[in-house]
Design a protein around this nucleic acid. Structure first.
Lengths: 193, 193
DNA sequence: GCACAGTGCCTAACTGTGTTAGTTGAGCCG
DNA sequence: CGGCTCAACTAACACAGTTAGGCACTGTGC
């Protein structure tokens, strides 16, 4: 049922998802969906939670074998997120909830998003990136990069060059900034300059 | 007429903009709008062009008296954009065209957006930032920062700290990178290290 | 002075979409 | 068996964008 919704979203776009279309794919009539979901937004809501849960799983897998070197680890994390986003654009669109008018995830559905952000934050911390501000900066930087890439040149090779540069830029800045625990970072940078 | 549309968008959100509501504000009935616009998307289209034209004007004003020092100039440019975005969230939402389902600006309406990007690009170049990649990186960085700020903490003071740091990070990276014309940059950095 | 086309608005109505109300039949439990 | 729940149904409503057709005003050419 959610699977049918995802299929429609992927094929026709998130906003062109119609209850009658979803219902048809599962062999029902539209009003019958209301036995399972309170509203169309409730469907979006479930999809939203599912999308972030998927990212959570992908992240958990990918973050297990990160290289210890910070620069390379950040690069891989960025690639993991980008690959995830580009592999299903409708899903990615839904995850940026601002892109769906009138939709706001419920706190419960928002929880996986929080978890994903926390996982990222924890992983960053394990690699020596401390402080909310450092995390925020990384998230905004990679987020902006991915968005810009998807909007302007999906599938192009600009991404590879830009993300490498962005990560270098970010790590260098970490080394310069006093984040309260810069030792780990400078140690790391000494390992692979 | 467009003014009425903007008013509705600001008050009720871009997606809750309804033709009947717009029509009522200008003392007409909804179908009469079709004497002036071919469709609802045509209204969005005109609003889109208008929004970018406004940014173009704001930018033209603001970029005239930029300080020559790169770091400070980039900071001011970022603030100009952020202030513009935060001063009308509906407008900002429309300018990121991906956020409105089924809407794609026509090439003519897209032109001001191109002009705005070109103006930014030119201004950056005047300050010694050369190369498409450098521009792309700045755009993605500030764009990501503004989006993240608007989504998470509009009006908060996180923005001030993050943007300062982002600009420092960016400029330092420019100095390190060989962008084909790093002399101007390094000269500038020598002026105010 | 007047027919005429054009313009800008109107009402009525159509289509598609989310949603509600009320019903029906299958399965389960006492 | 009688009643309950549940998931599906049909019918219909509300509200969106949109279209069709008409009516009044305005300017223009004869």
């Amino acid at each position: 049922m959610l699977a049918a919704a995802w299929a429609v979203a992927r094929e026709q776009g998130l906003a062109q998802l119609t209850l009658r279309e979803v219902a048809e794919r599962v062999g029902m009539r539209a009003p019958s969906l209301y036995s399972h979901f309170a509203s169309k937004n409730a469907i979006y809501d479930a999809m939203y939670a599912q999308a972030w849960t998927e990212l959570l799983e992908v992240g958990a897998d990918s973050y297990e074998n990160l290289p210890s070197e910070l620069r390379e680890a950040l690069r891989m994390m960025a690639h993991t997120y980008f690959d995830f986003a580009v592999s299903d654009l409708a899903r990615n669109q839904l995850m940026n909830q601002r892109t769906l008018p009138g939709f706001e995830p419920t706190p419960e559905s928002y929880a996986p998003a929080v978890s994903a952000l926390r996982m990222l934050s924890d992983t960053l911390e394990q690699h020596g990136v401390r402080g909310q501000e450092d995390v925020d900066l990384y998230v905004a930087l990679i987020g902006g990069l991915v968005d810009s890439q998807l909007a302007n040149d999906p599938g192009g090779d600009r991404w590879e060059r830009l993300v490498d540069r962005a990560v270098d830029m970010y790590v260098d800045n970490l080394g310069i900034e006093d984040t309260g625990d810069a030792d780990a970072i400078t140690d790391r940078r000494r390992e692979a300059p």
